[in-house]
């Protein structure tokens, strides 16, 4: 899932200075699961805002809403009837959701309520680890299911650097060396020959926003774009 963390309150409060009617919208999917931007967090943020503004003598009116996914326009459309009642929106979704919300309501200032941090897994309640950088060219098949792009500080793709340090990374002894972990995993599966395969360097240049049309949907997209 996409993992986010709540933005510092002062930052949110600063962005909302001058707005007296604010709608905070939670997202029911990734950010709800990682306990950063679900309904509960949206309502809590509103309470925090109301309290802070009350203390400052500038009361604020807030509303909270929850949508299934802020990355689908149809779900955002469910807010059409209430958005007009507010001066600004705080989206508790990931960066994609915030931007889609801002696209849906271009007249309305939309502010992020969370920092979108990584694609990761849930270790325990409230505890998440990054696992994927969405590089677009998955190597996990040859690296024993451990991602060197994410786990190696240098994102090396063909073995460790000279700084590998007794199972740890040179940056920090608490950070495991990705390539040591890959070696151990492959050795355990008798697939060490994989480690000798040369992986071509990733072309990180000229990154532009990516668009994907799934196989089988190119013609559908073309048919719909004609209209």
């Amino acid at each position: 899932m996409i993992v986010a963390e709540k933005k510092p309150f002062d930052e949110i409060s600063g962005m909302l200075a001058g707005f007296d009617k604010v709608l905070t919208v939670g997202c029911k999917t990734c950010v709800a699961v990682c306990l950063a931007g679900g309904e509960k967090e949206a309502v809590l943020l509103n309470k925090e805002l109301m309290l802070a503004r009350k203390v400052a003598g500038k009361p604020i009116e807030t509303g909270a809403a929850l949508v299934e996914r802020q990355c689908d326009m149809e779900f955002l459309a469910e807010l059409d009837d209430i958005v007009g009642q507010y001066d600004a929106i705080v989206s508790m979704a990931c960066g994609a959701g915030v931007q889609f919300m801002a696209e849906r309501y271009p007249e309305k200032p939309v502010f992020p309520g969370v920092n979108t941090t990584f694609i990761g897994v849930n270790r325990d309640v409230g505890w998440y680890e990054e696992k994927c950088r969405s590089c677009g060219n998955c190597l996990l098949g040859v690296t024993g299911g451990i991602c060197p792009i994410t786990m190696c500080a240098k994102s090396l793709m063909n073995g460790p650097c000279g700084g590998t340090n007794q199972t740890s990374c040179e940056i920090n002894k608490d950070q495991p060396c990705a390539w040591y972990a890959i070696y151990k995993r492959l050795a355990g599966q008798n697939r060490l020959d994989n480690i000798l395969k040369i992986t071509e360097i990733m072309d990180w240049r000229n990154n532009v926003p990516r668009t994907i049309v799934q196989p089988g949907y190119e013609q559908r997209k073309a048919a719909f774009s004609e209209k």
Partner: peptide, 13 residues
């Protein structure tokens, strides 16, 4: 019919 033709193109691949 359109959906069927799209899927057929995909299966051919």
């Amino acid at each position: 019919a359109l959906y069927a033709s799209w899927r057929a193109a995909e299966i051919k691949k």
